[in-house]
Nucleic acid binder design. Structure first.
Lengths: 212, 212
DNA sequence: AAGTGTGAAAAGTTTCACAGCG
DNA sequence: CGCTGTGAAACTTTTCACACTT
């Protein structure tokens, strides 16, 4: 009964999609522990949300539970995986392999969750390689060719703030559709491109408001 | 006329507080460029929000603008700074100086925004020091004594997921009130402690939903 | 008995539109 | 005239409460 929105997807709260990733991770953990079935109460506690919210979030995608019993861990996990568009391995590139960028490359957090960082780009590839980065690092002039050739859609952006907008313009022009932006700057992109900002100093500043 | 809530603060949307940090940063940039006065339209564009929202957000804290003219950059900047509790330099510690943690230490993003990371703690301080960290790195057994002695209220947490909860318990027990958590896990803390999660893999997963 | 699925109410947030001030 | 400050409307998201299923 719901009308699809302009992008062709039904109306699902944006925050629900964030939580879906959270549920997905919790389900994987349960699966690793050999759990087959989980109730909304238990899964919600693991994810740090209320049971009613979890049930409502899942209901946006269908009916997966059994009344009186709970949700089948493995099935629910695949359903979420599919809903998030994670059935296929997504190649990701990283642009700006300075201090933060090269640390993210050495950090295995992305691989653990099933993303493959296939290449990095920097104005000075040698410096990044010297920092102990093991994946290929190319000069930033090669971004466009690589993104087009490999049809890369996701990028992690760690360049200094003053270069971020011009780099993102080039990325978008080459076909990038999602940007995980670590530069403390508001990026301007076309509506069809999604930007997620991770602004570390901002997060600290936000915290400082709450510490009485 | 507004009733204060339990914590003694008036009812301000949580998201407005996030945006306040954003405005603060934009104002500093304007100030550096010698701008004295700014309209809601201009400042809102810089911050990536709508003018009406900016005005509403500022109105939660008082009346700072001049009708027909705009806002005084320097005054507004200090007012926000004060509202956020940033008048005084806040000491911050970092726990878990592994790959990601030591990168954050070398990265100067926090200092640039006026936070001083005064010490780091790790199970293996030598390894962190070998990674080129220049601020003091202590064994994690010394966390409690340090936090109490220096009255540290903010911490950046970068320990592996399996240790995060027990470390945060110790931090909270020592008086920490704000945690910037990089571990991909839901932390349980008392209500008076604020946790901000930065979950890198989750952000990527969230993006992958939006790339068609 | 246990636990999902869901309408409807409540709460929270954003946007509008315009009165009013400098 | 230009631009702020703000009530009221619109919209979004969360929570409740209970009918319903296994």
């Amino acid at each position: 009964m719901e009308a699809p929105d302009k992008s062709g997807k039904v109306d699902i709260p944006k925050k629900a999609i964030y939580r879906l990733s959270l549920y997905h991770r919790c389900l994987q953990k349960l699966h690793d522990n050999g759990v087959n079935t989980v109730s909304s109460t238990t899964l919600a506690r693991a994810a740090g949300v209320k049971p009613a919210q979890l049930r409502k979030d899942l209901a946006y995608f269908g009916q997966f539970g059994t009344r009186g019993l709970g949700y089948p861990v493995e099935i629910l996990s695949s359903v979420i995986r599919e809903s998030l568009g994670r059935e296929h391995l997504q190649p990701v590139i990283l642009v700006g392999a300075g201090n933060l960028g090269s640390a993210l490359l050495r950090y295995r957090g992305f691989e653990k969750e099933g993303f493959e960082v296939v290449a990095a780009f920097d104005a000075n590839p040698e410096a990044a390689i010297a920092r102990g980065v093991t994946i290929p690092v190319f000069p930033d002039t090669e971004i466009e060719a690589f993104v087009r050739a490999r049809a890369v859609k996701l990028t992690i952006l760690c360049v200094p703030a003053e270069f971020a907008q011009s780099v993102v313009n080039r990325l978008v022009g080459s076909g990038i559709q999602g940007v995980l932006n670590f530069s403390p700057i508001t990026l301007e992109v076309p509506a069809e491109v999604t930007v997620n900002n991770v602004d570390l100093a901002l997060e600290l500043e936000h915290l400082s408001y709450f510490i009485r």
